Amino acid sequence: MSQASFILSAFDLNLWCSVLETKFTVDDLAALQAIIDADIAEDPNFAGLYSIDRDELNAINQRFDAGFDPASLNLPEIEVWLERERKGRSLRDVPYLVHTNFELPLMLEGRKKLARFADVLPKTEEAFDRWVEKGLFHKEVFLEPMPASLKPYVIDPDHSAVRDVYYTLKGEEWRIPAMNLLWRAGGGWNEHFERLEGMLFGYEDWQIDWWIAHRNEHSGGIGGLPFCCIVGAESLEWMEVAGFKALPPLADIHVHIYDPDDDIRTAAFLAEDESAVALARFKLSLEMQRKLLDGNTRGPWQINREQIPEINRHLKRQVDVLFRR
């Protein structure tokens, strides 16, 4: 029977971060779903994050021998969460402490200089506001109308504005207008913006270098969706001559969204066409990405060979060849 890995975490509502975690294996997903009353139709792959009460935790410890005991911490306000381990893209795989969900303690230690939240949850804001009232943090709020380009994707039709909340250490207030300017620069997010953002948050240079190199290797670069398509022998040779700086305008292509967590499905694209010899991955500017999607957010998309030169003008970086046959 196949097994899946899950993570139980104890979240401290005062420090607003995880303070205890354990990983355990599950040999029967149905048994776990029965314990926490998860709706298998809504979340068949167990991709969600679930709040666990005391009785559910006791049942999980008994059935799967998780051995998780957050009560031993003797902390007044703890929530227990359950999530399935994500392979390949988990922040736990990064060789340094990523600030996500650790913003508050890192700022209190002075290791993080800035925190930015878009449409922040009330409980998160309350946790940070306590330190504003104590004079340790500085806070600024920006309220902007929802961009017209994002309105078609908004779940709540009444969500008409974006509320950005910034916190800095006292004396680091200059980071807020710098970050706000960075996000308003337009032109689509890129590697240079990513580096500047990391510096403003307070990451070290080696950490930023690792993160960018990892993103380039794993998902084809910074910003936007990664796409892929299969190419034939002549097209692959054309790409090699072009230094992998463009897609070959030799034939029509079928474009898919590239999923870095599903190599099996991605490699299967080669089996769709016996003449295909390689799979190419690329990223596009935000302008061309929206034009390509055109309301179809799942794909695939048919690109005529006459359209490929225009696609090439909007490539964000080199084209990567992931699989060869």
Rank of each mutant, 00 (worst) to 15 (best):
L136Q: 14
D129R: 05
L150R: 07
L143N: 06
E144D: 13
P76K: 08
E103M: 10
R116E: 10
L108T: 04
L97A: 11
A161D: 13
L143W: 00
R89Y: 08
P152D: 06
P157K: 06
P157I: 03
T124N: 02
P152S: 09
E85Y: 13
K134L: 14
H159C: 12
K112D: 00
R130N: 07
L91M: 09
Y96L: 07
H159Y: 14
E126K: 10
H159K: 15
E133D: 11
P76L: 07
L136D: 12
A161F: 13
W81S: 06
M107Y: 01
W81F: 14
R163G: 00
A161I: 10
P145T: 05
A115L: 07
L97R: 11
L108K: 08
R84E: 01
P152V: 09
L104H: 08
D119A: 14
R89C: 14
E83Q: 11
A161G: 07
L121F: 13
L114K: 01
S90M: 07
M146A: 13
V154Q: 12
M146R: 13
D158C: 02
K151Q: 08
A115M: 08
P105T: 09
T124I: 07
V132K: 01
M146L: 15
N101Y: 15
K123T: 12
V98W: 05
V120Q: 05
L106A: 10
A161T: 13
V132P: 03
G110Q: 01
G88W: 06
Y153I: 03
S90W: 08
L82F: 08
L136T: 14
L143Q: 11
V154A: 15
R86T: 10
E133C: 03
I155F: 10
D164N: 06
K113E: 03
L106P: 00
V162C: 08
S160M: 09
F117D: 00
R163Q: 08
V94H: 02
E125K: 15
P76V: 05
L97Y: 03
P122H: 04
K139S: 07
I155N: 06
R84W: 01
E133K: 07
K123W: 10
F102W: 09
L121Y: 05
N101P: 08
D119W: 09
D156W: 00
